[in-house]
């Protein structure tokens, strides 16, 4: 931002970016070391265990117990299905709302009203309707994940430079060309913002439902370990899910980097709505 922090600045004898990331990793490792020392020498083993014990519990029982592995695979499957449904329906609804100013002004307030509902209150209802199996968890993840995609697709379809539209028209482009060469690149940054938010919310919905249904799946095991004051496998199970979440997030981020037409969509396209998100 300012002129003081030029990119070539040297800190602690190395380029700034490397100093920053080294410090960041040092802090994370220090936190893990502090947990190890505290867990090993000071903590009540009913509540906190050292990192080494958590890693041990990851191999046994978390990864060796077939039922836990199955529960984790089911959660991954539910997140994937809910996310795919969110993208398909979110993009379809977003495009139909964003296609004209009239449709946007009419339907976006409805979407925003629904988005403002605290969905967690509906969780018992979802389980009541869809039962204890995967369907309810997928449905709950889907209703969480679809809204950011709709809202960001609509935002991305706004502010299309009319010159680009008329350029396509004057060069004899069809409607498909307009979509492919003007609307899609213009929409891409906002769309990927929506994809990222949607991933976080889809996982939130699925995990909430998983924890709520404590008769099977992940919720059963987290409850089992928490109520038996057996923190090592609990931490290992939660840590595995957190790593899965990080993995899913980075997949979305990689897709974003690969697929965003960065060079072709300069900031002056007027994506103010997308950038502020």
């Amino acid at each position: 931002m300012s002129m003081i922090d030029a990119p070539r600045e040297i800190i602690m004898g190395m380029p700034r970016a490397r100093a920053v990331s080294l410090t960041r990793w040092a802090i994370i490792l220090a936190a893990a070391a502090a947990l190890e020392i505290y867990g090993r020498f000071f903590a009540d083993p009913a509540f906190i265990r050292p990192v080494s014990a958590i890693v041990g519990a990851w191999f046994n029982p978390v990864m060796s117990d077939e039922r836990i592995f199955w529960a984790l695979s089911m959660a991954v499957f539910e997140i994937a299905v809910a996310y795919a449904l969110s993208i398909v329906f979110g993009a379809a609804i977003g495009i139909s709302i964003g296609v004209s100013n009239f449709a946007r002004a009419s339907f976006l307030p409805i979407v925003l009203l629904l988005y403002a509902i605290p969905q967690v209150t509906l969780m018992p209802l979802f389980i009541l309707i869809f039962g204890l199996g995967a369907a309810g968890k997928i449905a709950f993840g889907f209703t969480h994940g679809i809204f950011p995609i709709i809202v960001n697709v609509v935002a991305g379809m706004r502010d299309i430079n009319p010159l680009h539209r008329s350029a396509i028209a004057s060069m004899g482009g069809a409607r498909a060309d307009l979509l492919r060469h003007v609307i899609a690149p213009n929409m891409a940054p906002a769309f990927f913002t929506g994809l990222r938010l949607s991933m976080t919310l889809t996982m939130l919905g699925v995990i909430l439902a998983e924890l709520y249904v404590s008769t099977g799946g992940i919720g059963y095991f987290t409850r089992l370990y928490a109520e038996n004051f057996n923190p090592a496998p609990l931490f290992a199970l939660i840590g595995t899910l957190a790593l899965i979440a990080v993995l899913f997030n980075s997949l979305v981020r990689v897709a974003e980097r690969r697929l965003t037409p960065g060079a072709r969509a300069p900031a002056k396209l007027g994506l103010s709505g997308a950038k502020s998100k």
Partner: peptide
Amino acid sequence: AGLFTIPITLFFPMFILF
């Protein structure tokens, strides 16, 4: 920002434990 992209609901059982 990275921690916030992980659903913190995951850690809810730990809050119950503590």
